[in-house]
Design a protein around this nucleic acid. Structure first.
Lengths: 137, 137
DNA sequence: CTTATTTAAGTATTCAATCACCAAAATTAC
DNA sequence: GTAATTTTGGTGATTGAATACTTAAATAAG
């Protein structure tokens, strides 16, 4: 069973956690609550959230009633920025055969892989965190 | 640096090798020649070709002047079939969050991942090996 | 028959992603 | 101030995919 798209659990955790936190601006959401909501390992969720704190998208408070809160402006934060915070900058998927060595004039995939990657990037760029907030704040 | 599309070197070797072999129906192409043409490890190329032989797409002859030859009908063999011979059946990339646990009514990615996967599959299905032969036989 | 060539098959290594755990630091609540 | 809670940061295990290598078997050519 093969997946065509590289959508890791790490990115999925990042996107869902950010959306969940953006929808509860009044409560401090902690790892336990979030990992339960999205049914993921709390260790993995903790790691991802720590990275998002380091990158400035989230803030955190330790101790009882601690947790994470949104620091970024949801109207300006795109899904692309979250995606790339976890995975690194998206690069166009080119055919692994070096073009100098490819025995064909044009790529076997034509420009499909380029098109598809752009389509994905454009989607992520067009969506902000605010688009996923039930009540706007 | 993140790649959105899962296009492994293994699949790339399979597609390019099949096309190369289909274009030289009179010569026995061996691992050394093919791996040089596509600038890949001969060990890896050998592995992939062995699998394609087992699956019946190629035949082989050992010994001096041995090599691989096309067994499949290039007019009926699609790129999809080659792709799935190596990677396994393509499945729709769904969000790793179990739908029962997803806190959102609709997927964060909308149906983009479904659309993109179908687009890729449709492309691979629409191309036969014959489309890549310079002179038809 | 001997040697060289080539595929076949099995094994090993590498790498990334995920997951699990622990000790330390911070903070809150009592 | 003490105890409980929660993030932080580091480490290591595990898994699976991808890639690299090695030896064995087959075959052709001389």
């Amino acid at each position: 069973m093969a997946k065509v798209l590289n959508i890791t659990e790490a990115v999925t955790i990042a996107l869902h956690s950010m959306i969940i936190i953006a929808n509860k601006p009044d409560e401090q959401m902690n790892v336990k609550v979030i990992s339960t909501l999205i049914d993921s390992s709390k260790f993995h969720v903790a790691k991802i959230l720590q990275k998002l704190v380091k990158d400035g998208y989230l803030g955190s408070h330790r101790g009882p009633s601690g947790g994470f809160y949104l620091k970024a402006n949801p109207n300006e934060l795109t899904l692309l920025e979250i995606y790339e915070a976890i995975e690194g900058k998206i690069i166009i998927a080119e055919c692994p055969i070096d073009h100098d060595h490819c025995p064909f004039g044009t790529c076997v995939f034509d420009d499909l892989t380029v098109q598809m990657t752009k389509q994905f990037v454009d989607f992520l760029k067009s969506r902000t965190l605010a688009d996923y907030q039930k009540q706007k704040h």
